[in-house]
């Protein structure tokens, strides 16, 4: 016993080192399972408010570009509205377009963002008090950005597409074949789409949109276009390289998608799992 204590005392620095490394490893591994340690993420109060101060400052210098982006989006929405009004004249009784309130949009701003890590996250300046909850999608003026996983009173955060742990259900617009889209970790402009079988006809430049199967995003939100594709010998699916439509290096104003029937849909799907 005594010699054991002596041994421990002699190498106490090394054992302390081992203990701290083991604590770190436990943190890392827990985190890998997406079971985040609740307090150690950037939606917590102190770090988020510091990020917001910094973002308010830098935000000011980007106003011009942001204005242009919002004006473009505004113009696109106006065009859509015009088309809808034309439809409306011919079918007064058809209110299916107007009464579809499955999805609501909450505007917010990105106050922290990264593109150069393997696991990139965004932090938003809206939180629980603004109606934001985990599992909501984030979309920008040019398409899908990410989803919310952590929410505090005034802030929220979650993975962007540029996060190797996150996948989004996507489909090819022209023929509706769907697969899963994920980021390979190298270039912030490209992501990979797989599970597209060989018999599907692909062409460079085909538009990739959300499939609507995941209940996080509505169907038809833009993700990107096909940059190139190939099939490895022995593989069952195409390797499709998708150029993302969102520029993650400059993104600022986004909308959070709220699915009003998320709970209902999940409850229904759980019953399937129970069978």
């Amino acid at each position: 016993m005594r010699s054991l204590l002596q041994f421990l005392a002699r190498f106490h620095v090394f054992f302390l080192f081992l203990a701290l490394e083991i604590i770190s490893l436990i943190l890392i591994v827990n985190y890998n399972n997406f079971q985040r340690v609740r307090f150690l993420n950037s939606s917590n109060r102190i770090s988020a408010s510091i990020y917001e101060m910094s973002s308010n400052l830098t935000h000011y210098f980007q106003l011009r570009r942001i204005n242009e982006e919002l004006a473009t989006e505004n113009a696109a929405l106006q065009t859509k509205l015009q088309k809808l009004q034309v439809v409306d004249i011919f079918s007064q009784a058809d209110t299916s377009v107007i009464s579809d309130t499955t999805y609501q949009f909450i505007p917010a701003r990105i106050i922290n963002n990264s593109v150069n890590k393997q696991y990139n996250y965004v932090t938003l300046n809206k939180g629980r008090l603004d109606g934001i909850e985990p599992d909501m999608g984030i979309i920008g003026p040019n398409g899908v950005v990410g989803m919310i996983t952590n929410v505090s009173a005034h802030y929220s955060s979650g993975p962007s597409i540029l996060n190797k742990r996150w996948r989004v259900s996507a489909k090819i617009k022209k023929n509706s074949y769907f697969g899963s889209l994920f980021w390979g970790g190298n270039d912030s402009q490209y992501a990979q789409l797989n599970e597209i079988p060989f018999h599907v006809e692909l062409a460079l430049g085909d538009t990739i949109i959300t499939s609507g199967y995941s209940s996080i995003f509505p169907e038809g939100i833009l993700i990107g276009v096909i940059e190139d594709f190939n099939h490895d010998s022995g593989a069952n699916f195409y390797q499709v390289n998708v150029r993302l439509s969102t520029n993650f290096k400059t993104i600022s104003h986004i909308e959070v998608v709220k699915n009003n029937f998320l709970e209902e849909q999940n409850n229904l799907e759980e019953q399937n799992d129970n069978d």
Binding site: S24, S114, Y121, S157
Partner: peptide, 24 residues
């Protein structure tokens, strides 16, 4: 030194959403 290293890393982790990576 070890304690300071650990907590310095942890504080960076809190900011960059990477619990444990910088700490280790």
């Amino acid at each position: 030194l070890l304690f300071m290293g650990f907590f310095l890393g942890l504080s960076i982790d809190v900011f960059s959403n990477t619990p444990g990576i910088h700490a280790s």
